[in-house]
Amino acid sequence: MRHGRTPFIIGFLAVPVALYATFVVAAYIQTFQLAFTNWSGLGTIKYVGFDNFERLWNDDLFWRSVGHNLYLLILLPIITIAIALVFAFLLNAGGGSHGGKTRGIFGSKFYRVIFFFPQLMALAIVAVIFGRVFSTDESGMLNGLFPESWSPWLFLADERWALTCILAVMVWQAVGFYVVLFSAGMGSIEQEVYEAAALDGANRITLFFKITIPLLWNTLQVAWVYLGIAAFDAFALVNIMSVDRGGPDGATSVLAMMIYRNAFEYSQAGYASALGVALFFLTLTFAALTLRVTRREAH
């Protein structure tokens, strides 16, 4: 069988590798190349060395955007994973142990479907819907709930809260997927482990922290990386929901938004590529750090 192996693997891999090489690897290489030019997006290309990176270093908006991405990077995974874990635990083991079997709280099968709904909606639609939820006048869903005599809450128009509003939507959309992911992970934990722990007198909280979390560690790690990468994006929500796209006054600007504006609106594809390179290294650093820091089974 040995002789048939190589063509078989090549047959499977050729198409995806070709696609990946064309649309990801080649595009990245080109981005790195363009980062050293002052290309406008049209016309001739001139190499300018590290000029773009020097400008980047002195660009206030760049540092603010990095700050916003870091804010999302820290809070999005923590909040999403925390909520998803609690929900997944409730769905799988929250009903306690009965006749030697753990089970979810009443109606858990129904909730499992409901939780997944946000994941099915296109991001653009989610953004438009939440734009209505956060609308600053009385037609907004939240402002509509308050008495008319209150002055309306500004949400996205308030620079102190705008980014948090975006974060809330990201969490809302992500939770469902991770509930399902964690549920699957919890489902594969042997019942005997829970039984044994229950026999030793562990309550639900102890079960959660001493059994569920350690046995779910690998899944959590994946979730963390994925959510982190989502936090580096956030483009669609910012573009559609925020005041003046990234505002008010830069309060919700993120790197992806800056890349888009520089490439397609300011005709500074070179500078945008430099931003892309910065984002590339930030993402890479994050992924490497996450995998290293969360390494547990190394013993």
Partner: peptide, 25 residues
């Protein structure tokens, strides 16, 4: 996991690709 993370990197925008064929015309 490491490979999953690498694939995830593809989610970050690559400007060169978005702006179409570079330098043509």
């Amino acid at each position: 996991l490491r490979r999953a993370a690498a694939v995830g990197l593809a989610a970050t925008p690559a400007v060169g690709m978005l702006s179409g064929c570079v330098g043509g015309g």
